[in-house]
C-alpha cells in the first residue's frame, strides 16, 4: 500500500478498501471465516446456551502502558462473556477510523487484536470498516461483539446470590484507570502502573469445577468496584459489606489517587473480575485463582447480608461502617 495514512478513499468500498482489508485485517487475523468473503460469518455452534455481548471502545490515548485500543477491544468483550459464564468463541469487529490515522498504527492495533484473540482462543470472524473525516472521530473507535457458549450447569446471575455469600476480587483495583489518567493532557505525572488490560478466559476455565458454587461474576470496568457492588446490591436486593483493608489496591495507585482527589474503588479495571461465591467454597475458589498469573492478588473482600437491602457498606480502618455510594457524574481529579 502506497499511502502512509488512512485516506477517505480507504472507506470508499472500492479497490483501496479492499486493499486495506486484505493487507491489514486479513493478514493479521486470517481464518477460514474471513477467507470465505461472505457478507457475514456462518458459524456451526454446538448445542447449548449462547451468551452474546457488545462493547465500544473510544479510549484516548490509543496506545498506553500495558495495552492499546485493539487489545482492549478484545479483552473487554471476552471478559463480559466470561462474566456471563460463557466460553468465548467468536468476535465481530467494527472500526470507525479517522482520516489521517497512520497505517502503521492500524497495523499495530490489528496485530495486537490478533495476538489477544489467539491467546484466548477466539476467532475474529466478521468485520466492518468506515472512514470519517478528520475531526469526526478521535483516531479510531472500535466496536466488538462476541458470542460464547455457556457450559451446562452454569447460571451466573445476581438473582442467584444469597445472604452469607462471599465476594472475591481477582486483583488490585484501579490500575487501568490510573495508567490512562497519567497519559492525559494537563496531568503531568509519571507512574510505574500499567493498565491491567487482559483477557480473563483462564478464570472461566479454571473455575469450571466450582460452577455450582459461583453465583455471579462481574468485570469492574467503568465506575470501578464501587459501581459493580452497588449494581449487584440492587439487583440481588441484598446488602453488601466489604472491608476496606481487604480490598487490594497497590500503594502506587493509592498514592496517585490521594494526590488527585480520586478513589481507586471508582477507577476502571480491564483485567479483573468480581466473583460472588458460596461461603463454604470461597477459600478453594481463591486458591484456584491464585494459580492464575493475572489473579495473584485475589482476595475475599466481604460478604452479602440481608440488610440494608440494596446498599453497599464499607468497614473503615477505624472499624466504622459507612455507605460506599454509586459514582455520580464523571470521576475527575479535583483540588478541593
Amino acid at each position: 500500500m502506497k499511502a502512509e495514512r488512512i485516506l477517505m478513499a480507504h472507506g470508499s468500498g472500492g479497490l483501496m478498501s479492499q486493499q486495506l482489508i486484505d493487507e491489514i485485517f486479513k493478514a493479521a487475523w486470517s481464518n477460514e471465516y474471513l477467507e470465505s468473503m461472505l457478507d457475514g460469518a456462518l458459524l456451526d455452534l454446538p448445542a447449548g446456551r449462547i451468551a452474546m455481548s457488545t462493547d465500544s471502545f473510544v479510549i484516548t490515548p490509543i496506545f498506553f502502558p500495558g495495552g492499546d485500543i485493539g487489545k482492549l477491544s478484545i479483552c473487554g468483550t471476552i471478559n463480559d462473556l466470561v462474566a456471563c459464564g460463557a466460553r468465548p468463541l467468536y468476535l465481530s469487529v467494527a472500526m470507525i477510523i479517522e482520516e489521517g490515522l497512520p497505517l502503521a498504527d492500524l497495523r499495530r492495533i490489528a496485530a495486537s487484536m490478533a495476538q489477544t484473540a489467539a491467546l484466548a482462543g477466539v476467532k475474529l470472524v466478521t468485520g466492518d470498516t468506515k472512514v470519517v473525516e478528520k475531526g469526526s472521530a478521535d483516531g479510531i473507535f472500535i466496536n466488538t461483539t462476541g458470542i460464547g457458549l455457556i457450559p451446562a450447569g452454569i447460571d451466573y446471575r445476581p438473582q442467584q446470590i444469597r445472604e452469607g455469600d462471599h465476594i472475591i476480587v481477582t486483583g488490585t483495583m484501579g490500575d487501568h484507570g490510573l495508567s490512562i489518567l497519567a497519559q492525559r493532557e494537563g496531568l503531568r505525572f509519571s507512574t510505574p502502573v500499567s493498565s491491567d488490560c487482559a483477557p480473563l478466559y483462564a478464570i472461566g476455565r479454571k473455575l469450571a469445577p466450582y460452577k455450582a458454587d459461583i453465583r455471579c461474576m462481574r468485570d469492574p470496568t467503568r465506575g470501578g468496584l464501587a459501581t459493580v457492588l452497588n449494581e449487584i446490591a440492587v439487583q440481588s436486593n441484598l446488602g453488601i459489606i466489604v472491608r476496606d483493608k481487604d480490598i487490594p489496591v497497590s500503594p502506587v495507585v493509592r498514592g496517585a489517587c490521594d494526590m488527585l482527589g480520586m478513589d481507586p474503588l471508582y477507577m476502571a479495571n480491564e483485567g479483573k473480575m468480581v466473583i460472588f461465591t458460596a461461603p463454604e467454597k470461597s477459600a478453594a475458589v481463591l486458591e484456584t485463582l491464585h494459580s492464575i498469573a493475572e489473579c495473584q492478588a485475589a482476595a475475599i473482600i466481604g460478604e452479602l447480608r440481608a440488610q440494608p437491602a440494596g446498599l453497599v457498606l464499607i468497614t473503615t480502618e477505624l472499624g466504622a461502617e459507612r455507605i460506599l455510594a454509586t459514582l455520580e457524574g464523571e470521576h475527575v481529579p479535583r483540588i478541593c
Binding site: 473503615t316 480502618e317 477505624l318 472499624g319 466504622a320 461502617e321 459507612r322
Partner: peptide, 9 residues
C-alpha cells in the same frame, strides 16, 4: 470525617 467513619463513631 465521613470517609473514615469518624462521624458515625
Amino acid at each position: 470525617i465521613a470517609k473514615s467513619g469518624i462521624r458515625n463513631l
